[in-house]
């Protein structure tokens, strides 16, 4: 239980490479395997996901609601994670990003805090 990424210890059955799912938001048909060979859980176009795993209790969740991306996390290893929030029960999950994820939405989420800062940013220009 001491590993940083709780998803790493989970044993998924390897799906066939032709498996697809439909995005709950934009309806895009997405393959479950990304170009790097990893398993993906969010739409590469709109980055939305579906709440199927319960992280607090463990095991599957019966919520099945849409999860919207709320922020980008950069790990110490340099990997980017995307943090999702369920729009129905407000649970948070984090997932690694796939190589073909929409870079425009990723960057838009990354610069979003700086658009409305809670304090003036001019003083940081001197540092």
């Amino acid at each position: 239980m001491s590993t940083g990424n709780p998803n790493s210890g989970k044993q998924h059955t390897v799906p066939p490479r032709t498996d697809t799912f439909d995005c709950v938001r934009c309806g895009l048909t997405v393959t479950t395997v990304d170009p790097a060979g990893g398993r993906r859980n969010h739409c590469p176009s709109c980055l939305h996901s579906r709440h199927v795993l319960d992280r607090v209790e463990g095991g599957p969740s019966e919520c099945m609601a849409r999860m919207s991306p709320i922020s980008i996390a950069v790990l110490r290893s340099g990997d980017w994670m995307i943090v999702h929030r369920c729009i129905r029960c407000d649970e948070l999950t984090s997932n690694t990003i796939a190589p073909d994820d929409n870079q425009l939405i990723l960057i838009r989420m990354a610069v979003r805090p700086l658009a409305q800062p809670p304090f003036p940013l001019e003083v940081f220009g001197e540092w």
Partner: peptide, 22 residues
């Protein structure tokens, strides 16, 4: 990481170092 609400409020996202909860 840092997240922003729809009304512009900043939110911190914490991750537990022992169990990985967010």
């Amino acid at each position: 990481s840092m997240s922003v609400r729809a009304d512009g409020e900043w939110q911190l996202i914490h991750q537990c170092q022992s169990c990985g909860a967010l």
